[in-house]
Design a protein around this nucleic acid. Structure first.
Lengths: 179, 179
DNA sequence: CACGGATCGTAGGGGATCAAACTATCTTGG
DNA sequence: CCAAGATAGTTTGATCCCCTACGATCCGTG
């Protein structure tokens, strides 16, 4: 939690920088209880690490006045202009129904265009506007800094192996979907 | 709300077995779009891997009629009988206000007891009931199987280094909190 | 011992997400 | 060519989570 013990001089209890999410988890000063087998479980630490990473990235994007989810969205549209919302959802790991309001917001803000596909009138053809390209550029800078921070913590020796392991986890844990 | 328990093990693949979360992400059949720099970003793959892991674990606990969040909760209470809700929240990485309804539910289901602390009348002293111990035992079996699956995907050579890296990420990404 | 500040648990608000249901449109088998 | 089934996007409902605010309680100071 915040600062458990030492009562801070309570200086300037600023209201959290306005709009920038706070998002703290576990962390530091905690007395550290016994975790038992949980302390050795990959899944548990995977969750904690991901949540810490997400919170750290959200702090960065918040400073830029942008939402963390925008980055992957913009990046994938940039790399695959004209793709559909469903395809985008698959790429970024979000349900299409989750993207509906996000894309609507991004369109309102002038970051993306949702042109109707010429071959399939059900689907949109997503592209970035110049403002979207610029937002992507800004977010890309933050993302690079964030990932550099992650790299430093993981360590260069195992970075590649670490990333490969993450890929194997993502690919190897698909639902069986038997039947 | 949540009556996740006691859902018949109707292995029928029909309408998502009622209460057992489906939770699919990205995955297989997708045509695999271009990801650009995103494809090399640790943070992105960390998120995908964690979500895949969580979904896989949720499928397991769902079969037992229990919620995935119960496991860490029960495990930490088991290891630290008499702890407070706030301390529990710090240990499992959840805000105390998130635990309020979860613990209320677990108390209703007879898994935990919330005895009043003798030294601090504000806080509860959490302990497991026999039913809670049994639920923990069941969940522990599923968690062990889940973690074995993760271990297999990560690979024994780098498991220890992988886990250490996750710990470093969680500890190294704390908010500055300079304020 | 009274008071101000910190902490415990709870309530309410808001954000993000998924699943199911729905409409519009596409595709395919006969 | 047409009906049945699949698919794109939206809407709605539910869950999970955090943050803020609040009352109750604790604690350190004067």
């Amino acid at each position: 939690m915040a600062q458990p013990s030492r009562s801070p001089p309570s200086r300037a209890r600023r209201p959290a920088a306005e709009g920038v999410p706070r998002l703290r988890v576990l962390h530091g000063g905690a007395p550290a209880l016994r975790l038992g087998p949980l302390g050795e479980a990959l899944g548990f630490h995977l969750r904690l690490a991901q949540e810490a990473s997400f919170a750290a990235f959200a702090r960065r994007t918040g400073e830029a006045g942008l939402k963390p989810g925008f980055f992957a969205t913009l990046a994938v549209i940039h790399e695959n202009p004209g793709l559909s919302q469903t395809a985008l959802g698959n790429a970024v790991g979000r349900d299409k129904s989750t993207l509906t309001p996000r894309l609507a917001e991004m369109e309102r803000e002038g970051l993306i265009r949702r042109g109707r596909s010429t071959t399939d009138r059900r689907s949109y053809a997503l592209t970035l506007t110049p403002a979207g390209e610029e937002a992507l550029s800004i977010l890309g800078t933050h993302a690079a800094a964030h990932d550099a921070q992650l790299d430093a913590l993981v360590g260069p020796e195992i970075r590649a192996a670490f990333l490969d392991a993450l890929r194997r986890l993502n690919q190897g844990l698909e639902p069986e979907d038997d039947e």
